[in-house]
Computed example of a mutant assay.
Amino acid sequence: MSNPAAPPKGRLAQLRQAYTITKQNDRNIGLILLLTFLIGAGVTAILGVLVLGTGLFGTIITVVFSILIGILALLAVFGRRAEKAAYAQVEGQPGAAAGALQMMKRGWNVKPAAGFTKNQDVMHRVIGRPGIVLVGEGNGSRVRSLLAAERKKHVRIVGDSVPVHEVVVGRGDGEVPLPKLVKHLRKMPKSVKPAEQTAIINKLKALDAMRPTAPMPRGPVPTSMKGARRAMRG
């Protein structure tokens, strides 16, 4: 028997799922995509006529390139709006930040739920070129207390030479909205060399070994987001 909860296989199935998710949060997505295709193809067609003329060869090249550019423009717009819709669908749910962070691959080490409170406020740890980034989600005041305590633990182990940053996910003052979280981390100043990241990870293994398992659900972002991005890349 097939698993109904399993993500769809195949590019077309992933595109259909991404479109369905996007349609729930963006009712005008169909019209927007149609206009994007028409504008992209139309502008290309005009340029093609001006450059290549209206002869048979020029017309064929213009039509082919107009369709290709229209499709590329459509997919670019769809990818951005699908990502925005996926974030909107899960923002505020437990584990959403962990799901977004796990989209970060090369050059980043992500440990979801590295710390937590009994009220299910969670701290995720990211190690990358900026150093150590402690990302908290949950109640604002409790999360800040959790991050402050975790910062002290990490500084004791890695020392003052490694920057330890604190980021709270949310819509409040001084917080980073979930859709901007990954971009925010990638724009942080680079203070640690790639070779030093492995040493930092090894040092923190002792701290992680003393922690209990975090009772939190898996982030809901990866399934929808990865499916959409995989379909966009082809």
Rank of each mutant, 00 (worst) to 15 (best):
V176S: 12
L204A: 01
R211C: 01
K111S: 12
V167K: 03
L50M: 12
L75F: 04
M104Q: 11
V43C: 13
M216T: 14
P220E: 04
H124Y: 00
R129T: 07
K190L: 05
M103S: 08
K153T: 13
D121F: 07
R233Q: 09
I201L: 02
V64R: 12
N139Y: 05
Y19W: 14
L38Q: 09
I39S: 13
M123V: 13
R211E: 08
K205V: 07
V126P: 00
P212F: 04
A13H: 13
K180A: 15
V133N: 06
P94A: 08
G174A: 07
I127N: 08
F37T: 10
R211S: 11
A41Q: 11
K105L: 04
A148W: 00
K187R: 15
G53L: 01
G136E: 00
R16V: 11
V51K: 10
V43Q: 09
G10C: 08
F37A: 08
A206F: 12
V164N: 02
S161M: 05
G70R: 12
I200N: 03
D160P: 01
K153V: 07
A41M: 13
P4E: 02
R80I: 09
L12Q: 14
L185C: 07
T54Y: 09
G227H: 02
V135C: 08
A97G: 12
P8D: 06
K23A: 13
N119L: 03
L38N: 07
L178I: 10
V122Y: 09
L12R: 15
T198D: 09
V164K: 06
T54G: 06
S2P: 14
M232N: 11
I67F: 15
L72W: 15
R80V: 11
L12V: 14
G128E: 06
Q89W: 03
R142Q: 10
V63P: 01
V122E: 03
T36K: 02
L31H: 14
I69G: 04
A6M: 07
